[in-house]
Structure formats: structure tokens, C-alpha cells
Write a protein that binds this DNA or RNA. Structure first.
Length: 175
DNA sequence: AATATCTTCAACCGCTACCCC
DNA sequence: TGGGGTAGCGGTTGAAGATAT
């Protein structure tokens, strides 16, 4: 039997209140991130460490963007997903200010539906990847060689697909 | 205006990777 | 080297808001 990460009766669940957010922010500003397990007690929060970590990373951390994704961000997510699969943390790492949770939600709610509506068969990963990654001729054959796309399969692939450089990246990849 | 249904997204859960002793 | 503790990740859930009837 796995030990629960925190005592059930001692922790709040559900949405965070403004007071809880403030306590967590104040504590992290004063002491920095890390040692999440000890943060709730030290900060006077009735939450488990995991919950604190998630709240900080997804919502409170300075620089986290909220709201609509731009077309360029959406395009990047689609291409990265075709390349990496459901590796949301990796994908989010290429989108400044976006979190894995937000990217995952956006994919599931918006992009997935949009692609299905456009006639893409998301169960047919091979076909989907081929069509999405068609502009990247140089890596196309490699992608088709691996059954499950793995970032480690492309040691020579520059994955610095940060926003604002997509056109340069396309050119570089086509060279 | 009331109710049902759908959509969105914050938060939780369970598993795995990693680190330290 | 392996065992325990912690952090991080991805899948899933459920509450709240939006929209349709």
C-alpha cells in the first residue's frame, strides 16, 4: 500500500484561495523554490507539497502566460507534438511562459478537435507526422524509420524551435 | 427564466526517474 | 548497489462557466 503524499484530514483540496496563493508566493519569494514537501508546513498552508508545486509552476510563477495561444504558438505545438508525442513538458519548454499543463489542456481542448475537424487521423501517427512535418524534408525519412518518435532518435536535430524563429528553423532544416 | 448539456481548465492521482545515503 | 525519499511528468477528473433548448 502506497503512502499518501500527505495526511488527508490535514490538507485542503480544490481551488486555491487568494490567501493561500499569497502565502505560497511570500514563502517562495523569501526562501526560493524546492523542498516542496516541507513548504506547506513552513508556509502555513494546509496543502500537500505536490499541490503547492503545481500551483506555483502553473499559475503563480512570474512569467507564466495565461490566455489565448497565438497562431505561431499553436503551429509550434502541432509540429512539436508530431515530433515528440505527448511529452508536454518538453513541448512547453519550447514555448516561453507556457506550462506543460496548459499546453496539454490546449491540445486536448482546441488543437485536437481542430485537427480532427480538418480530417487528420490522430490515431494514425505515421500519416499525421508525415503531413505535419512535410516542410522538414531532411528529417522526414528519419521520422518514418522510428515507430514511436523519440527525441533521442535525432541526435543531430536542432530542437531549438523557440517562437519567432520558426521560419529560420524551416530554412535551416531544409538545408 | 429555468434546465440540460457541453466546454474548459485547474487541480489531483499515480507512476517513474532521480538523487542521496 | 539497493532502498528510501522527493521531484517531475502525463493522464484523468470534476467544478465552474458558457451555450443551447
Amino acid at each position: 500500500m502506497r503512502k499518501p503524499c500527505c495526511k488527508e484530514e490535514e490538507s485542503n483540496k480544490g481551488c486555491w484561495s487568494k490567501q493561500e496563493d499569497q502565502k505560497l508566493m511570500d514563502y517562495i519569494k523569501a526562501h526560493g523554490e524546492g523542498r516542496w514537501r516541507s513548504i506547506p508546513h513552513a508556509a502555513g498552508l494546509r496543502r500537500c507539497g505536490k499541490s503547492c508545486r503545481l500551483r506555483w509552476l502553473n499559475y503563480l510563477k512570474p512569467g507564466v502566460k495565461h490566455g489565448d495561444f497565438g497562431e505561431d504558438e499553436e503551429d509550434l505545438i502541432i509540429r512539436l507534438h508530431a515530433l515528440l508525442g505527448n511529452r508536454w513538458a518538453l513541448i512547453a519548454g519550447r514555448l516561453p511562459g507556457r506550462t506543460d499543463n496548459e499546453v496539454k489542456n490546449y491540445w486536448n481542448c482546441h488543437i485536437r478537435k481542430k485537427l480532427i475537424h480538418m480530417g487528420h487521423d490522430l490515431n494514425n501517427l505515421h500519416g499525421f507526422r508525415s503531413s505535419v512535418l512535410a516542410p522538414f524534408k531532411s528529417i522526414g525519412p528519419k521520422i518514418n524509420e522510428v515507430p514511436e518518435c523519440n527525441i533521442n532518435s535525432f541526435p543531430d536535430l536542432n530542437l531549438d524551435l523557440t517562437l519567432g524563429t520558426s521560419s529560420e528553423e524551416k530554412e535551416a532544416l531544409q538545408d
